[in-house]
Structures are given as structure tokens and as C-alpha cells.
Amino acid sequence: MTQKDKLFQDMTWGLVMAVFSLVCGLAINFLREKPLPLKYEDKSVRLDAAVARLNGENLSVSQLGKTVTSGELEALLQQKANVILLDVRPDLFYEDSHIPGALNLSREDFEEKYPSMASKLIQADRVIVYCAGDYCEEAEMVAEALRKLGHKNLSIYPGGWAEWQRRKKDFSPGRPS
């Protein structure tokens, strides 16, 4: 058997491994509580669909505002103003660590978590949304979704968790009680 034949044989076995991996992936996905749809939809499409469903349930109340710097955020937190801080990263990251007092409303769990949070968000003077960092688009997407649901006084903290960490702020492990 030449080296070329051996390479061909290895590629064939590699293909068998790939097919086996796909079968494993499909089987495990089938057993998941929230399976990945076989036809993937972009995250903005998924969030729009969730907003449309929530709007259909008359949960709506109404302007995407400005951005907040780390200094402003720190001052707001120190004043203990009626501000709600929304961490829109996936809950695993939120549970690991987050800005003190922040609530978790990830894009993926938006439809599920929003109804229980709606009244708190309406009562707040200001809602500040943040995600992982500078290049993260989740905060804008969730803020836009909240705006579509009628929420006012929305702001984005563009630096997000990365900037907050850089400023060596305290972090609070676990969910707020």
C-alpha cells in the first residue's frame, strides 16, 4: 500500500467519523430541552420573533436612548438611583459573575424571562443594558427589543462586562436574591 493509498484510507475513516459525529450530534440534540433547530435562524430573526409573540400578548408599554460610560454607571450605582441594570449575556456567564445588582435577560431567554421582569422594568427610571464588551451586539439587540415593547429610558453601557472588569470593580457571584 503506497502512502497515497494510506492517505485515502485515512480520509475515508475520517469521513466515517464525521458521519458518526453528525449522528451523535442529532441524537443528543433531539434529547435536549431546547434543541437547536435543524434550520438555523439568525439571532436578530429569533429575537424579532420573540418580540412579535410578546407584543401579541399585549405586554407592551415606549425610545432607545443614549449610552452610559463606566463613570456614569458607577455614579448611578452609588446614588442607588431607581435604575435597572440588565446583563444580556447567556445565563452561564451571568451566574459566573456580573456587575453588582444586575439582572439577567439574555437574548436567548428573552421570551421566557421578559414577562416576569416587565413590571420592574416599567417602574424603573432608567434601564441600562450591557453585554460582554465592545464588539458585542447583544446589548443593542435587546435594547431594541425592549424599545419595540414600549420601554422608555433605555441606555446601553457599550463597554460592557469587559470594561467593567478592566476597571477592577467588585463583582458579585451568583444571582441577586
Binding site: M17, A18, F20, S21, L22, C24, G25, L26, I28, N29, L36, P37, L38, K39, Y40, E41, D42, K43
Partner: peptide, 26 residues
């Protein structure tokens, strides 16, 4: 999807379901 490759929704799902197992098994 963020890589903006010419892949449709089906292909993205197939890759997302296959790749982790392929890496682990290999």
C-alpha cells in the same frame, strides 16, 4: 454565523451539531 461564510441555515446547524463531537471523538 458571525463568520459570515456562504452557508445557509441547514449547513450552520449541521456544522454546529457535528463539529463538537468530531473534535471530541478525534
Amino acid at each position: 454565523a458571525a463568520y459570515q461564510l456562504p452557508l445557509n441555515g441547514w449547513m450552520v446547524s449541521v456544522i454546529a451539531l457535528t463539529l463538537p463531537f468530531l473534535e471530541t471523538i478525534s
